[in-house]
Design a protein around this nucleic acid. Structure first.
Lengths: 254, 254
DNA sequence: CCAAAAGTGTTGAATATACACCCATGT
DNA sequence: ACATGGGTGTATATTCAACACTTTTGG
């Protein structure tokens, strides 16, 4: 590499999130049946600290490539990536380092494609080992990035369509609700039956709002959540209708 | 400077906005009496292109310092700065350059403190010379940054308190309305009398919402917009009440 | 039968939007 | 007088939030 004036190191980090089933053993009464997980890479060198995926921006690599580089071939398509913010005080240096942090949302179908070159785990964000007791040690600064990423995800989830990025191709209304519950850590009807109707109504309203938005933009009234016509039986109760999301995740809903 | 591996150049840019009175000569009927302006620095070298303020991140400078460095001593306090996003494709290089773009909001009282070391102008964002005819040439990429900054500002202004950052210490309800009109480019009551009441009501509701939010946080019901008790006479009509903003601009209102 | 899950309905409060009106004052 | 600017009021639609109820089905 040639010497350039005023050069600093740039790191691209990503907090990769996904939704997974909560193991029955770890499900306290009232807790949602799904949970939000983040991908952490195992300790490197002698630090003993876990870290968010990412790496240096070198040559002509994009920020996205640098963030996903250590996650295996073919990782990228199917993952929604957006910037969180850029830090100038995360890595004390030297060398002087600027960190560009991202949020990534991984649908279940793509999760298997994520094969980090080093040991890695999907860690539930609201449970040990991220919190006491037996806290998993994180690289300095990465806990802050993760906290801010989580905060941003929770804020954005109710004025965007980001939640749909972590659903399978086909899903039931219950699964959709469980995804929102896992992200927000809040009961929206799975345990408290009284809130269920409000959630489904808010989704209906969202669907119509987005449909009208698309009509204004393309001339065709196209709500993003469509029934496939099929149903699926759960362990209890009647069969649930299956839906697909056909819209654009990046659309802002309000 | 020592050679470091994987080093790239990092630039910190800022789109500095302020609100100014629209010259009576350029005020078409129906247009708001104030306008949103952005600071542009004059051509440098042989490019002939105008540019957003900013500069390289070197040594131990923060991103904020690098963004404001060429704007004169003592610039920083009183200006609200927040990140827009980080670009990896703005400057084609070489050298490989990453650009961290910011949005800055300058209150009128601080505007005079901004004294760029090179020729500079505050340019109205919705008029020539930024748009045809006689378009003012911008450095490649800077038009895109400006457009995205403007879009973000317009989006954020109605779920945050950012508008208050561009008001003088004391202001009337009309001035507040005119600031919103200048940012959004939309008549909220200055010309269309029917909308005026709705704007004032929305401000009252905002004020109470924020007051309750502060009560939940500090125990004291503290709405951010308070009457000073004084009034001010305009060119027409009765005297208007004067208000001050005593809250925190960074608070999210929804 | 009963508990869990899918799905529909009702009602009152808060908010947004459209529109009407009065008062003060400089020209 | 009248246009301009400050300030208040009213009616309707939409949305939010709390709560009640019916149906299906596995154990």
């Amino acid at each position: 590499m040639t010497q350039t004036p005023d050069a600093v190191c740039v790191q691209s980090l990503v907090a990769l999130f996904t939704i997974d089933d909560r193991p029955p053993g770890r499900r306290a009464p009232g807790q949602p049946p799904k949970e939000l997980k983040v991908l952490l890479l195992g300790p490197e060198g002698d630090s003993g600290a876990w870290r968010l995926p990412g790496g240096p921006v070198t040559g002509q690599d994009t920020l996205v490539r640098a963030a996903l580089r250590t996650l295996g071939e073919g990782v990228g398509p199917g993952i929604h990536l957006e910037q969180l913010r850029t830090y100038d005080d995360l890595d004390p240096g030297p060398p002087r380092t600027i960190v560009v942090a991202h949020i990534g949302l991984v649908p279940p179908a793509v999760r298997e494609a994520v094969r980090p070159s080093s040991p890695a785990t999907w860690v539930p964000v609201d449970e040990p080992p991220l919190h006491a007791p037996g806290r998993l040690p994180l690289v300095a600064g990465h806990a802050r990035v993760l906290a801010e990423a989580l905060q941003r995800l929770r804020n954005k989830v109710d004025y965007t369509l980001l939640a749909f990025q972590m659903l399978p191709e086909e899903f039931t209304m219950s699964e959709l609700r469980q995804v929102y519950e896992a992200i927000l850590g809040e009961d929206l009807g799975t345990s408290d039956e009284r809130r269920k109707a409000n959630f489904e109504r808010s989704i209906r309203l969202l669907n119509e709002r987005v449909g009208r938005l698309m009509e204004a933009r393309t001339g065709v009234f196209q709500p993003p959540i469509v029934r496939t016509g099929r149903t699926r039986k759960g362990p209890r109760g009647p069969a649930a209708h299956l839906y697909r999301f056909v819209g654009d995740i990046t659309l802002i809903t309000k």
